[in-house]
Simulated assay, not measured.
Amino acid sequence: MTITLPERDWIRGITIRQPWATCILAGKNPENRPKPWSWRGWLLIHAGQRLERPALRDPLVATAIRGRELHLGAVIGVARLIDCHLDQGPEQCTSPWAQRDAQHLVLADVHELPLPVPATGALPAWKPTPDLVAQVFQQLPDVRR
């Protein structure tokens, strides 16, 4: 399936600590954040420089990252942010990844890059350079502009 990307101001980067960034590539949804996001659209999934070691002991995380390399300081994938909402309780937010009382960033069209692209991110969301975007989407021939 080919996905055509929009024009103009259509993409942001999101920096996420490892192992959570890799968990997203393995199906983690939603991404939990303390504040709501008004942005909707494509996101570069950027693995931050820090590894959150205690998370590695979580069985859900351990299963998701098994056999995967935990890259640091690089864009490792892309996804489309389609919604952001406050946790609605276990009856509505049934994902095991959903944290209670958090904002849930709902992702779709998640694509893992074959090769990570080294990059410096920022918090909370940042505008990637055109060169970085080109390097990322060069690896995703089914996602084009």
Rank of each mutant, 00 (worst) to 15 (best):
I3M: 14
I3D: 09
L5M: 10
L5C: 07
P6F: 02
P6A: 01
E7K: 15
E7L: 14
R8P: 00
R8A: 13
R8K: 09
D9C: 01
W10P: 00
W10C: 12
I11T: 03
I11C: 08
R12I: 00
I14S: 04
T15S: 14
T15Y: 04
T15H: 08
I16Y: 11
R17I: 00
P19G: 00
P19D: 00
W20E: 04
W20M: 08
W20V: 05
W20H: 06
A21L: 02
A21N: 00
A21C: 06
T22Y: 08
T22V: 10
C23P: 03
I24G: 00
L25Q: 05
L25P: 13
A26P: 06
G27E: 08
G27H: 06
K28F: 01
N29D: 15
P30N: 14
P34S: 13
K35Q: 12
W37R: 10
W37L: 07
W37V: 10
W37H: 09
S38C: 03
R40D: 01
W42E: 14
W42H: 14
W42Q: 13
L43E: 10
L43M: 14
I45A: 08
I45D: 05
A47N: 06
G48L: 06
G48Y: 06
R50F: 03
E52S: 08
R53T: 15
R53P: 07
L56D: 06
R57A: 15
P59A: 10
P59D: 15
P59G: 11
V61N: 01
A64T: 09
A64W: 08
I65A: 00
I65E: 01
I65Y: 01
I65T: 00
I65Q: 03
R66G: 06
G67F: 04
G67W: 07
E69M: 12
L70P: 14
H71A: 13
H71D: 04
G73D: 11
A74T: 03
A74M: 06
A74Q: 05
V75E: 10
G77V: 04
G77P: 08
V78L: 04
D83M: 03
C84A: 13
C84S: 15
C84Q: 12
H85N: 04
L86S: 11
L86W: 13
Q88D: 13
E91R: 05
Q92D: 07
Q92Y: 14
C93D: 15
C93Q: 12
C93V: 02
W97E: 02
W97C: 04
W97L: 02
A98W: 06
Q99A: 05
R100S: 10
R100A: 12
D101S: 10
D101H: 13
